[in-house]
């Protein structure tokens, strides 16, 4: 399993042709207490860089963009009742959705963890 990151602070971990997407620890810290997350329904087609989910804190709302293109296979329904999972476990139980990748080559344009960490360090 390998993990990739975007400049918009999403992560995607890929196993075979299925990816799991969430927002990074940096992103959840920047947003603060997450109070609401809206995840895409199964079967929805998403495109790389396009709107896929919404995440909200008390004073901010952000789009979550899909790191790659594909078809959603599952949304994380647990977030509806427990949006705090995004704060508590951004790269674990706080995932947003899973998708079947339509163009795995898109992964190559993303950062690996080391590159992402450098990128974040540069923002601070």
């Amino acid at each position: 399993m390998s993990m990739y990151f975007t400049k918009d602070h999403e992560w995607i971990s890929v196993e075979g042709s299925v990816g799991t997407v969430g927002i990074t620890d940096y992103a959840q810290k920047a947003l603060g207490d997450i109070v609401y997350a809206e995840v895409p329904e199964k079967g929805r087609k998403v495109t790389k860089g396009g709107d896929a989910a919404v995440v909200e804190s008390v004073k901010a709302a952000s789009e979550v963009y899909s790191p790659v293109s594909g078809t959603v296979t599952a949304g994380n329904d647990a977030l509806a009742g427990q949006p705090a999972l995004v704060n508590e476990s951004p790269e674990g139980d706080g995932w947003f959705f899973k998708l079947e990748l339509s163009n795995p080559a898109e992964l190559e344009e993303l950062m690996d963890r080391a590159a992402y960490d450098d990128y974040v360090a540069g923002l601070e």
Binding site: Y36, E56, S57, V58, K59, A60, A61
Partner: peptide, 12 residues
């Protein structure tokens, strides 16, 4: 639930 509103969402 202010994130619905103009001062946060602006054009959305």
């Amino acid at each position: 639930l202010s994130t619905r509103e103009q001062h946060i969402r602006r054009e959305k």
